[in-house]
């Protein structure tokens, strides 16, 4: 056998090193390991040897082939890696170049506040009730124990509409009509909150809007007490504002509740902030809805949604809520 493995390997190593592309290394591989390579030629000559010598020569050939293969593979890997690196380098991007922005839309601040309030009350076992924004005097006043002569009517600053008798149809001045509609249509027990738009003859300024949003709660069940009202308010306040916030009830007056209260929440500085009104549903209101006050008792509470949003983000002008400037809408 006239093959010198050492020479062959040295020759192959030199050829592999000279190859600088994957194509070239492929050619080198063919040259040394292909059918016409020296190794193949040497293999063909093995048959002429006696068995002992053939075995030893065959083994040597196989070893040489393996070493050649390893040598060429190693070079290929180096070249592959370099080629990949060059390709990737060519694809380099500056990720801070932002030509296209994905734009998400934004829920209105009032919607976000309302959804969150609804979620807290749903978690406390309430359903969400809704009603019309234009109401009759029955739903807005009379059924709520505010007869036609009552001085409290004046305090609602009601916006009336040109339908029917004068002052018989109006934009609801509170969400309380939904209480009446719910009680008229549903047997107790009732656990609802009623969010929605309400209206007053307030000229729009930094702190007032003629249309704003309130949420109102109503519970009618057997044996519901004022203690339940105070506890419910407290549970809500802690769920919505945080466990460290306290609540308190102060006597107040609403024609549709008795006893009536304002409820306050504590602020970080220890002072109290008036949040809304509440009370035990007046027996006359229950009777007006066909519910027997000797069997059922209830409580109700209500407060402004917009005001919560204004407080939370310290808006200096509530009119932003209706201007619909996208620079405002997209902040939340």
């Amino acid at each position: 056998m006239d093959l010198n493995p050492q020479d062959l390997l040295a020759e192959a190593a030199a050829a592999a090193d000279a190859a600088t592309t994957l194509d070239q290394i492929q050619a080198v591989t063919g040259q040394f390991l292909g059918k016409k390579g020296q190794l193949s030629e040497a293999k063909k000559q093995l048959g002429a040897l006696d068995p002992e010598a053939r075995k030893a020569a065959g083994q040597e050939l196989n070893e040489t082939r393996q070493r050649l293969q390893d040598l060429l593979d190693a070079r290929r890997l180096v070249l592959q890696s370099a080629e990949r690196a060059a390709q990737l380098e060519g694809e380099r991007l500056d990720l801070t170049e932002r030509l296209t922005e994905l734009q998400r839309g934004h829920l209105h601040l009032v919607t976000q506040a309302r959804d969150r309030l609804e979620d807290v009350f749903v978690g406390m076992g309430y359903h969400v009730a809704e009603g019309p924004e234009v109401e009759t005097a029955w739903y807005n006043f009379e059924a709520l124990n505010i007869p036609e002569w009552h001085p409290a009517r004046g305090s609602f600053d009601t916006i009336f509409v040109e339908m029917g008798e004068p002052e018989s149809v109006m934009l609801r001045s509170h969400t309380s009509p939904v209480q009446i509609r719910t009680m008229e249509n549903q047997e107790p027990p009732i656990y609802i909150v009623a969010p929605g738009r309400t209206f007053r003859t307030d000229t729009a300024d930094a702190t007032h809007l003629p249309a704003f949003n309130q949420i109102e709660g109503l519970v009618v069940d057997r044996g519901v007490t004022m203690g339940d009202l105070a506890g419910t308010i407290d549970a809500f306040v802690k769920a919505f504002f945080g466990g460290e916030v306290k609540s308190r009830l102060r006597p107040s007056y609403f024609p549709f509740t008795e006893p009536s209260a304002e409820f306050d929440i504590s602020r970080a500085d220890g002072s109290w902030l008036e949040l809304g009104g509440c009370g035990m549903v007046h027996p006359n209101v229950l009777r007006n809805c066909g519910i027997d006050p000797d069997i059922w008792q209830g409580f109700a509470f209500g407060f402004g949604i917009d005001r919560l949003a204004v407080m939370r983000y310290q808006l200096d002008d509530i009119r932003e809520l209706v201007n619909n400037d996208v620079r405002f809408l997209r902040q939340f």
Partner: peptide, 14 residues
Amino acid sequence: IVRTVPRGEQAGGL
């Protein structure tokens, strides 16, 4: 007045 919550058991929901 001692604070309690109504004992009625209801699942809330939208």
